[in-house]
Design a protein around this nucleic acid. Structure first.
Lengths: 225, 225
DNA sequence: GCGTATTTTAAGACAGCCTTAAGCCGCCCA
DNA sequence: TGGGCGGCTTAAGGCTGTCTTAAAATACGC
């Protein structure tokens, strides 16, 4: 799950970004409107959700939102607004946003609203299963045959991506972009290493790996179980 | 609401039983200690509250209470005692009971005290346990292996959060918000310090900590005990 | 207002994750 | 059949996040 956050106040930006990373989102942060717009337009298909500050130096969140909506009608957008700067009614009519929060807000609430939007966008699951392997997003826990398996953050995020896309091919570029962040070098073998970690921790010995390699493309967890 | 009443004097037993039935409680009556213990242990999960006479033929109420507490830490227990047979201080320490009444008592008073206990017992859970560690929200008390452990307010609040979410991952962001009521400040190590306090006070030496660290995410108390 | 208890900050030590790199293996194609 | 490309595997180092301790700041009770 990849999120774009456009927020100029560094403290708030860090807080939100770190909070989301604890939930195993990949977060890109832009500290001003111009940078935000560039990131948004360059990588629009990659983002599962976008958080926009309302008041931004250089270019307001509204303009960014309009630009996004020209390209993509569906990606959920949530505005973060300072108190009392927004007229609720006007807000609903004027922008293409899906929701907004007044600062200061409880992080829990942001998460809850994000989940609502992501649920309707991608289906409501937060537990995933393949054969005897189960992953629970909320408790951040993975079990194999009922026995807990400890995964690190990156391992967890990678497995989550694979299971969310069970049956579909996950291209290497897509994996890099969803699990690692925007600035990451695309010519890297980290994915291989982490696929290997997952296989070691979760494969059943003597059986073919639950992660199939698609040579030249990426990886896939099959659908048929 | 189902109540177990253990009382050897038939007149009193009937009086209480009928009174409670008028209040639409389901009442099981045992007329001696042995029968009371059997009923208690056979149907423990069914009872919402237990009334125990202090002096009973065959087996005292105290013994029954101890036996109950071995099985179930939470079900409210009220003692009914003849006047002047109990030293209040000793009572509080020695038994696992929640309250007691001196005979003769007004029926209304019994009802009132029962309601207090039932409200806190059924409204929301207010005792939590992990292995030999117990936390009681109402009395604000924590014990390890039955021995009281003094916790400060913050320590208590943190432990309560962890135990309320036993089995779930508690994200650092969530902890900061729930226990410290801080928004938008992620640059604090206060959580670590307090986790360390709890570990020092409550861990069993030579064993892994009862609080698991989830690197990059937060902490978790396991579910499986 | 003083002394004690609690909370918070800060800093160095430490551990474990992330990433890189290098060598190996196997598949594909000439 | 051999070369090359891509993926697998392993180990090691850097780095980030956590632990631990101590001391400062704050709250509390007398």
């Amino acid at each position: 799950m990849r999120v774009l956050l456009v927020e100029d106040e560094t403290a708030i930006a860090n807080f939100i970004a770190e909070g989301l990373e604890e939930e195993s989102f990949a977060v890109d942060v832009a500290h001003n409107g111009r940078e935000g717009l560039r990131l948004a337009l360059d990588n629009l298909p990659e983002y599962d959700l976008i958080l926009l500050d309302w008041m931004l130096p250089g270019m307001s969140g509204i303009e960014i939102c309009r630009a996004i909506r020209k390209e993509n009608k569906t990606v959920p957008v949530i505005f973060l607004t300072a108190k009392d700067t927004v007229d609720d009614v006007v807000f609903g009519l004027e922008t293409g946003a899906n929701d907004y929060l007044r600062k200061p807000f409880a992080f829990e609430e942001l998460l809850a609203r994000m989940r609502v939007l992501l649920r309707s966008a991608t289906g409501e699951q937060n537990t995933f299963r393949y054969a005897d392997i189960e992953l629970d997003v909320e408790t951040h826990r993975v079990t194999k045959a009922g026995i807990p398996v400890e995964l690190t953050q990156k391992e967890f995020a990678l497995l989550e991506l694979l299971l969310r896309n069970k049956g579909k091919a996950c291209r290497r570029t897509r994996i890099i972009e969803k699990v690692w962040d925007i600035n990451f070098d695309h010519d890297t073998a980290v994915i291989d290493v982490y696929i290997n970690f997952l296989r070691k921790k979760l494969d059943t010995p003597g059986q073919p790996s639950f992660i199939q390699t698609l040579r030249g493309i990426g990886y896939r967890v099959n659908d048929d179980v």
